[in-house]
Amino acid sequence: MELFGIAFAALLGSNIILSRFLGICPFLGVSKKSSSAIGMGLALIAVVILSSLICYGLDKLLVLLEMQSYLELVVFILVIASFVQLLEFFLKKYIPSLYKSLGVYLPLITTNCVVLQVCLDLVSREYNLLQTLVYSLSVSVGYMIVIVIFSHIRTRLDNSQNMPKAFKGNAIALITAGLMAMAFMAFSGFSF
């Protein structure tokens, strides 16, 4: 039941975009078309799950060396970035069709707050392996749900005729995201 609580909170209750304000830069940049939003979401799911597993092991190593609080940030970001580079190389060489659809977004995910925040979270909350898997899967699926919904709304916003000039582009997108955040606030306050 506790796993369901973790999954529900990460997916809907304290959604990583709408409640915790992380990963906003791609949220505003990539969500102009729904195909790119889906691609971004899928790439993020893959990267977050795999790098959370890597960071789980790395954290055990750093605790062993008693240098966790000093080296945590530097080693995590270096390993995450090198993992993303390795993944891109692997896709380029062996699965070119997958690279065609998802590979454009991989460099964007290197400097994405979500990946680093998931790794820092699983350290500070001291999750075990199964909880790490569930948490990273539900955070990234929650991100993908929000960005895909938002891209559909955004195509309608961009095509509207009567938008005042000052609100065009990202200003009205932010206000719409605020309305979405209000809707998602309905999911907070559950405890399992």
Partner: peptide
């Protein structure tokens, strides 16, 4: 890994991917 990735070329047909990323 960064140099390894930089040196491998993109597969054929992927040259114009940049337009899909908005």
């Amino acid at each position: 890994t960064f140099l390894l990735n930089k040196k491998t070329k993109k597969p054929d047909g992927c040259e114009n991917l940049d337009e899909t990323c908005a």
